[in-house]
C-alpha cells in the first residue's frame, strides 16, 4: 500500500517506443488466403450454373425464388418447430435423467444409465424409421389404468377397459409426432450427459452451504446448483441445438414431409435443378444457425453473471480510484 503510493509519486519514465517484431510468414499466409477468397467470390459471381435468380428471384415463371416458395417456407417452419419441440423434450428429459443418474438410489441411477446407453447407441436415423413404424405394435394408445385387462381378468371381468382417452396409434405415431419423439428421446440421452457434467462441476461446498441454511434438496438444485451448472451446460447445449437443426432432415424417413430439406429436394426432383437447390438449403441452414448463435451469446452472458472478468476488472478499477483518491481501501469494520 505505502510502496504503491511511493511509486506513484516517483517521476513516470518515458513510455516504451520499440520496433515490433516482424512476422513475414503471417503475411504470406494472408496473401494466399486473400487470393483464394477472391477466386471463390469470382466463381460465385461469374459461374452462371449457380443460377442465383433461380435461388432468390423466381425458379419458374410466376413463382418466387426457390428459397422463398410456399412449400419451402412451410418446410422451414416445420424444421424450426421440430427443432424447438424436440430440444424442449430433450432438455427436460436430460435434466430429469441426469438427476436420476446422480441419485443415491441404485435403481434410479441404473434406469438412467440404461436410458442413456440405449439412446446413445441407436442412430437417430434408425430411431426415426422405428418410431414411424411403431404403430405395428399397438392399434390404440391411451391414458388410463395400467394393465387394466389383466386386472379385470383377476376379478373375473373380461375386457375391462379403463382407458380415459385413447387414440389410434397410426394417427398419433405418424409423421410429426413420431419424428419429434425420436429426436427428443435421443436428445434426452445426450442432454443428460451434459447436465450431469454440469452438476458435477459444481463445488460440493455449494450444496452443503445451502443445506446448512435449511434448504430442501429440490431448492438447492433449483436455486444453487443448476444456475451455476448452466455456465457449463449452455455451450454444449448450443452445439446440440445446432446439430438438431440439421438432424431434423432425418425425419424425412419417418416419413415427415413437413421439413426444409425434404421440400427442397422435392423441387430439385421436379425441376431437375440440383446444385442451386442445395445452395438454397445451405443458405437457410446458415441463417438459422447464425440466429441461434446470437441467442446463445445472450444466454451465456446471462448465466455468467458473478463470474464476469469485466465486472471484476471494473470493480478493481473503482478500488484503485478510491486508493488514489487518498482513501484507504476497504471500509470501516
Amino acid at each position: 500500500m505505502t510502496t504503491e503510493q511511493q511509486e506513484t509519486e516517483r517521476a513516470r519514465p518515458e513510455p516504451i517506443k520499440a520496433v515490433p517484431v516482424r512476422h513475414p510468414g503471417r503475411w504470406v499466409l494472408i496473401a494466399v488466403l486473400a487470393i483464394l477468397a477472391a477466386m471463390f467470390i469470382h466463381l460465385l459471381v461469374t459461374n452462371d450454373r449457380f443460377r442465383w435468380s433461380f435461388i432468390f428471384l423466381h425458379y419458374q415463371d410466376g413463382k418466387r425464388g426457390v428459397m422463398f416458395t410456399e412449400p419451402v417456407l412451410e418446410g422451414l417452419r416445420g424444421t424450426i418447430l421440430l427443432t424447438i419441440t424436440s430440444m424442449v423434450i430433450g432438455i427436460v428429459l436430460g435434466v430429469i435423467i441426469a438427476i436420476m443418474r446422480l441419485s443415491p438410489n441404485r435403481i434410479l441411477s441404473s434406469v438412467a444409465w440404461i436410458y442413456t446407453w440405449f439412446f446413445r447407441a441407436v442412430p437417430r436415423l434408425v430411431l426415426a424409421v422405428l418410431f414411424g413404424n411403431l404403430n405395428i405394435l399397438w392399434d390404440r394408445i391411451g391414458f388410463g389404468l395400467p394393465f387394466d385387462h389383466q386386472i379385470g381378468k383377476l376379478f373375473g371381468i373380461n375386457d375391462l377397459n379403463a382407458q380415459f382417452y385413447s387414440i389410434k396409434a397410426s394417427d398419433l405415431l405418424a409423421g410429426f409426432v413420431a419424428g419429434m419423439l425420436a429426436l427428443g428421446l435421443s436428445e434426452g440421452a445426450y442432454m443428460a450427459e451434459i447436465v450431469r457434467a454440469g452438476i458435477q462441476s459444481i463445488d460440493p461446498g455449494q450444496a452443503e452451504a445451502a443445506h446448512a441454511l435449511g434448504m430442501s434438496r429440490q431448492l438447492v438444485l433449483r436455486r444453487v446448483v443448476l444456475p451455476q451448472a448452466m455456465r457449463v451446460i449452455v455451450p454444449p447445449t448450443g452445439n446440440e441445438v445446432i446439430a438438431m437443426v440439421k438432424d431434423t432432415s432425418l425425419v424425412a424417413f419417418v416419413p415427415v414431409t413437413f421439413e426444409l430439406f425434404f421440400q427442397l429436394n422435392q423441387i430439385s426432383a421436379r425441376t431437375f435443378v440440383v446444385l442451386p437447390v442445395l445452395v438454397a438449403a445451405l443458405i437457410w441452414y446458415l441463417i438459422i444457425c447464425s440466429v441461434l448463435m446470437v441467442g446463445q451469446f445472450f444466454v451465456e452472458r446471462h448465466f455468467s453473471r458473478g463470474y464476469g472478468s469485466t465486472g471484476r476488472a471494473r470493480q478493481r478499477l473503482r478500488d484503485i480510484e478510491v486508493e488514489q483518491g487518498g482513501r484507504i481501501t476497504g471500509e470501516a469494520s
Binding site: D203, G205, Q206, E208, A209, A210, H211, A212, L213, G214, M215, S216, R217, V224, P227, Q228, F303, R305, G306, Y307
Partner: peptide, 26 residues
C-alpha cells in the same frame, strides 16, 4: 425426513472455512 432435517438446520447457522457463498448471486 428431509423436511424435518431441513427445519432443524434452519436454527443452526454454519460458517465454512472456504466461505461457500453463492457466486451467481449478489
Amino acid at each position: 425426513g428431509e423436511k424435518d432435517v431441513a427445519r432443524q438446520r434452519q436454527s443452526i447457522g454454519m460458517v465454512f472455512q472456504r466461505f461457500n457463498l453463492f457466486p451467481h448471486m449478489t
